[in-house]
Design a protein around this nucleic acid. Structure first.
Length: 712
DNA sequence: TGCTGCTCAGTTTTT
DNA sequence: CTGAGCAGCA
């Protein structure tokens, strides 16, 4: 089982120069709707970027081109690649953005047309929206303990269908009958909407839906945007939802210059509202559409591709039939690893990576370990740490969703925009300063009665009848802190400096230490805050100012997941199968191929909380997810599973994933791994000294470093 | 008001 | 087993 790096692999350095006929046809396409059906690894992204470059070459101004992607990262990458082709000068005016960010831009520019008071609005992330729903449930007094996510999912579905609560409930009742969650969701939904309105806030769905509503209502506004964008490109089209289709359709209705790229076999986001029919029915939505299929795979060796095709073999009812054709040689065989337990599984992957790094000249960045659920990451992290292999984890709890980060940023928000009520509520009694539930209720009811903002009352608490002296004092403290920060900003102090001041004033460090159970945990959380300082000082260095600029930046951060902006970082990637879409690695491990994990238990048992998906079976989506994971591998693929796994704190026996079972055995070699292979530390001097370095840089608190903790 | 300790639940994916 | 949410108490 050896695989060579270097020889045939660089076929995959493809693109730019040589295009096959289909690719060329797609790149040269100029006017009218175009669907590029691109199988995994068929060079879709490079075709799309080259087409954009070609449009610019043809004399279409870059500023008239809008490309929409799924993630910020994909957007950044596409922008870079186009800029490389046409030059930074030419590419500068190009718009490459996620749907959500584009929506944010439009809403930000159209606050007047939207009829909003003022120009400021907030964006609510999941934590915020969950909080809103929780509050509403309290007032509704159901007595039951509802899953908030399930309610939000239904609200989201209704929003994206542009239906109000009654219309949605009616439609669902007719199509499938209502369950408990549908009932409660239809009660919560209108209240949720008015809550958002009173906060002057948009949730993620609104960023798309409100644009569509506005455009439908205001032809003059729509015309403005239509004139601006003469060419629209959408990547990963299989993952768009109904509202995104509507947005696209409105924008291109006149000129019809819409080019979408995608692959229905890689549709894995139905659970969050993506509708694969968008890509299946593209030709009905955009009559006269040209369809180009890209079926040559330039990424993977034949062995990987054969297996990938076998995975899809079992997929019923594929509409756009594609067969991926190999362009590379067979390569090393795919290996299936049956590990005794998850630690063995992790040790195996880490050992193989280490071997590949030392013996085959691979770089860490060429390797990835993919799993279904973030819970699986822990043993993998530990195994890599033990061997001093650098890695980065994508996903998990997002940086900007961490409590300490949100707390500090909420202060900055309030400083910049005192009417940001969500932020104000968050910090009004943090750190505790005597403004508890009762005091807050007094403040808000006074604000409601006098039709003024919460901030106004907080800054003049003496107006409130029988307001407790302690709470009054608390308000004064809060004012002192925010005023201090505001003055610093006004004086032109860098934003990072102001953040430091705020952290200092609220004794954030002390609070983190007091609120953490272990020293390393406290360290990690404080590191997050330090990370914020670094982030903002980097922004300061770019000469960005305070005020509006900073408000925009904070909004932008809400939509930004941290991919670790160190794109060039040479590290092994640990990520979920979802998080890996669009990426590729020479060496790939897919771990946890067991029933209950893939397919995930939640997609099997039909739980009351899940929305029944129409036309899409979640089991099929799980299979496609497996397909996506497998097709990430360029040279060598390992499929791993464990015989036992921790569930609810107990070791439970596991059964093989049905998807793995479905693959003809002649497409892979199977191997059992039992003893946890010890990390070969003593093997190399480099390894030993790296360990020493790691130990000496461990926290000197007397606490054991985190990595030493898990051992059974 | 705010803390502590209890219970309970719940285990996916993310703009 | 862990974390979050909640009730009851100081």
């Amino acid at each position: 089982m050896s695989f060579t790096i270097g020889l045939p692999c660089f076929m995959s350095a493809r693109v730019a120069t040589s295009l096959n006929p289909s690719q060329r046809a797609a790149v040269e396409h100029e006017h009218g709707p175009l669907l590029v059906l691109a199988g995994a690894g068929s060079g879709k992204t490079s075709v799309v970027t080259q087409r954009i470059a070609r449009l610019i070459e043809r004399g279409h101004p870059a500023r008239s081109i809008l490309a929409m992607t799924f993630t910020n990262k994909a957007a950044g990458e596409m922008f870079e690649r186009v800029a490389r082709l046409v030059g930074a000068q030419q590419g500068r005016d190009l718009t490459v953005s996620t749907f959500h960010r584009f929506g944010l831009t439009v809403l930000g520019k159209e606050t007047r047309a939207l009829g909003m008071r003022g120009t400021s609005f907030a964006i609510f992330d999941q934590a915020d929206t969950s909080g809103v729903v929780r509050e509403i449930l309290r007032t509704v007094k159901t007595g039951k303990n509802y899953d908030i996510g399930a309610i939000l999912a239904r609200i989201s579905a209704a929003k994206n269908a542009f239906l109000d609560a009654d219309e949605w409930a009616k439609r669902e009742r007719e199509s499938r009958g209502l369950d408990d969650y549908d009932e409660i969701a239809s009660i919560v939904y209108p209240k949720y909407q008015s809550a958002l309105k009173s906060f002057q806030a948009f949730d993620f769905d609104d960023l798309i839906c409100e644009v569509v509503r506005l455009w439908r209502k205001r032809k003059d506004v729509l015309d403005k945007w239509r004139q601006r964008y003469r060419f629209v490109i959408v990547d990963e089209y299989q993952d768009t939802n109904h509202a995104q289709l509507e947005l696209t359709r409105l924008l291109v209705e006149e000129h019809k210059n819409v080019c979408v790229g995608g692959d229905d076999d890689q549709a894995i986001y139905a659970w969050r509202g993506a509708d694969v029919r968008n890509i299946l029915d593209f030709q009905e939505h955009f009559p006269g559409a040209k369809v180009i299929k890209l079926e040559h795979n330039y990424r993977s060796v034949g062995a990987v591709l054969d297996l990938a095709n076998a995975v899809l073999q079992k997929q019923p009812g594929r509409r756009h039939k594609k067969t991926l054709m190999a362009t590379r040689d067979k390569g090393p065989r795919v290996e299936v690893i049956v590990a005794a337990d998850p630690d063995v599984e992790a040790a195996f992957a880490a050992n193989e990576i280490q071997k590949a790094l030392e013996e085959k000249g691979l770089r860490p960045r060429d390797c990835a370990i993919l799993y279904r659920s973030n819970l699986q990451a822990q043993p993998l992290e530990a195994a890599l740490k033990e061997r001093q292999i650098p890695y980065r984890m994508i996903g998990g709890q997002q940086f900007f969703e961490r409590k300490e980060v949100k707390d500090l940023l909420a202060y900055l928000r309030v400083v910049l925009d005192p009417e940001d009520e969500m932020a104000l509520r968050r910090i009004v009694n943090y750190p505790a300063r005597g403004i508890g539930e009762a005091a807050l209720a007094k403040l808000t009811s006074y604000a409601t009665a006098k039709d003024t903002t919460l901030w106004h009352v907080v800054s003049k608490p003496y107006l409130v009848n029988e307001f407790p002296a302690v709470a009054m004092d608390g308000c004064r403290q809060l004012l002192r802190i925010t005023d201090g920060a505001r003055q610093r900003l006004a004086k032109g102090e860098p934003s990072a400096q102001v953040l430091r001041y705020l952290a200092e004033e609220i004794k954030l460090k002390e609070d983190i230490i007091a609120g953490s159970t272990t020293t390393p945990a406290a360290q990690r959380r404080w590191n997050n805050i330090e990370g914020l300082f670094v982030l903002f000082s980097r922004r300061d260095e770019q000469g960005k100012g305070g005020g509006e600029d900073l408000i925009d930046y904070l909004r932008f951060l809400t939509l930004q997941r941290d991919d670790g902006d160190e794109e060039a970082e040479d590290k092994v990637t640990l990520t979920t199968m979802h998080g890996t879409k669009g990426l590729e690695y020479k060496l790939v491990f897919v771990v946890g191929l067991e029933e209950g994990l893939l397919p995930h238990a939640r997609t099997l048992g039909d739980r009351a909380t899940d929305i029944p998906l129409e036309g899409a079976h979640s089991l099929d989506e799980e299979r496609r997810l497996f397909y996506v994971a497998v097709t990430r591998a360029k040279d060598k693929l390992y499929l791993c599973r464990s015989r036992v796994r921790l569930a609810r704190g107990k070791m439970m026996p596991r059964t093989i994933s049905r998807f793995l079972q479905d693959i003809p055995p002649d497409l892979y070699d199977e191997r059992e791994v039992n003893a946890p292979e010890a990390p070969p530390l003593e093997k190399t001097v480099a390894g030993a000294s790296a360990l020493l370095a790691a130990l000496s840089s461990a926290p000197t608190t007397g606490e054991a470093p985190l990595m030493m903790r898990r051992r059974r």
